[in-house]
């Protein structure tokens, strides 16, 4: 790559989408691998942020403000989801302080 091309290098929407895909997959592997319910919740937040990032980059690429409006709604729903999810986790962990995701199988039947 020559110097003139390097000087003009600027990230396009594809770069942002690739970064969002990487972030999403890291979060997904985290949900599948980790057993601490709190850390699994953090990985869900990573996935939500990856989707937000791709929404914003597509909003700029397509020149449409609606991509940013929907990110606003995603953030509100994510906040509500964290509040309810942490409430459930607190209720479980208060009863069994060292519970992991595997132990929740005892809920069945």
């Amino acid at each position: 790559m020559n110097a003139a091309l390097l000087a003009e290098l600027r990230p396009t929407a594809t770069w942002y989408l690739v970064l969002a895909a990487l972030l999403f997959c890291v979060g997904m592997v985290g949900v599948m691998v980790r057993r601490n319910p709190l850390v699994m919740f953090m990985c869900v937040e990573l996935m939500l942020n990856a989707v937000n990032l791709s929404f914003v980059s597509l909003a700029r690429e397509l020149g449409d403000i609606r991509g940013q409006t929907i990110v606003f709604f995603v953030m509100v729903v994510a906040a509500a989801e964290v509040v309810v999810g942490l409430g459930i986790i607190v209720a479980i962990l208060r009863r069994r302080p060292q519970a992991t995701a595997d132990d929740l199988a005892e809920l069945k039947g």
Binding site: L22, V29, G30, M42, L46
Partner: peptide, 9 residues
């Protein structure tokens, strides 16, 4: 972003 994400897991 990527360092933080890998750090979380």
């Amino acid at each position: 972003v990527l360092l933080g994400a890998v750090g979380v897991i």
